[in-house]
């Protein structure tokens, strides 16, 4: 089996495994309510640190950290050229997180999921999800409506439809804007298709996300997040960003970017990793890469050792 399909197969197997222990009689399941990412509780004290995806939820990843991302060369080069200073453009300051990223980013998410009910027929037509960063909130339509055509606008939230598979909800999202997979410039193109599986286990909700990006990925991008039911949570309205002038004398149209050939080596140096291992790619996604990584580390170690033994010139 090619590596391209292994991630998808793994995700489906994981989804199926999660479904088996509590197969319900009904074909739909209620996800409505407030949900929060579980925080670590040590000795009865709740820490602000989340269990998972810390760099995505909090400070953000380091430049050049593409580890475990199935980036192709186009995506890698786009990430290398990205400069965080671009976020100072007034016309970017209020950007919500794109749907490709929002489920595991933005300090949470702290979600409120509500049913969308047709006011006339009382039919359950969708699920509304509020609480995403800067208001990139989503609606998952359950009424069988088609996705928009090729000329329709792309949104931060994309356009999502869902179908029930037992009590697991399969959601397909298209029409997303050009977004990112990590907040260090790793791109996710607007032609990406996102497939999600929502599974509830009592007071926990697991969401498995699979991205197919024909432009910037060479394999499936697969992640899962688990949320805890949190009836005490109050999801407020999104922050409305009032863009301010952070550019000083820079005119409209100033676009900071790194020149071609930029090497973000800081991350590799800080964690003692071979530079190649930080560059992502399909092979870095799979467990077999550990062997390659060990070989690369041994190679680098030997090189350093040789350098140390060479007489100073």
């Amino acid at each position: 089996m090619s590596t391209r399909y292994r991630a998808g197969a793994c995700a489906l197997a994981l989804g199926a495994a999660m479904l088996l222990p509590a197969a319900p009689a009904s074909a739909q399941f209620d996800f409505s309510g407030e949900w929060v990412t579980p925080r670590a509780v040590i000795y009865g004290r709740t820490l602000s640190q989340q269990f998972e995806d810390g760099p995505d939820r909090a400070d953000g990843p380091e430049m050049g950290d593409y580890t475990g991302l199935p980036l192709n060369e186009f995506g890698r080069r786009k990430a290398d050229a990205w400069s965080a200073s671009v976020l100072a453009q007034p016309e970017r300051q209020g950007n919500p997180h794109p749907a490709q990223y929002s489920m595991r980013g933005g300090g949470g998410p702290n979600l409120r999921i509500t049913k969308v009910i047709d006011p006339v027929t009382s039919a359950w037509t969708g699920l509304r999800m509020d609480g995403f960063y800067n208001g990139g909130n989503r609606t998952i339509w359950l009424d069988g409506r088609p996705h928009p055509g090729q000329y329709a606008e792309h949104l931060w939230s994309g356009f999502s439809t869902g179908v029930w598979q037992g009590h697991m909800l399969k959601v397909t999202t298209t029409h997303m804007k050009l977004g990112f997979l990590r907040r260090n410039g790793v791109p996710s193109s607007s032609r990406t298709t996102m497939t999600e599986y929502f599974v509830r286990h009592g007071t926990y909700l697991t969401v498995i996300t699979i991205l197919e990006d024909p432009d910037y990925l060479e394999d499936y991008f697969v992640r899962d997040v688990t949320l805890r039911w949190a009836p005490e949570l109050v999801v407020g309205p999104p922050s409305i960003v009032d863009p301010s002038d952070e550019l000083g004398d820079k005119p409209l149209g100033w676009v900071p970017h790194n020149p071609p050939g930029t090497r973000h080596t800081e991350f590799a140096e800080r964690f003692g990793l071979p530079f190649e291992a930080t560059r992502g790619g399909a092979e870095t996604v799979y467990p077999e890469y550990q062997k390659t990584l060990a070989e690369l580390i041994a190679r680098d170690k030997a090189a350093r050792s040789r350098q140390a033994q060479e007489p100073a010139r």
């Binding site: 453009q89 016309e91 931060w156 804007k177 050009l178």
Partner: peptide
């Protein structure tokens, strides 16, 4: 396709 400002910025 139809755009808003964010698409033109990109």
């Amino acid at each position: 396709r139809l755009c808003n400002e964010a698409d033109v910025v990109e």
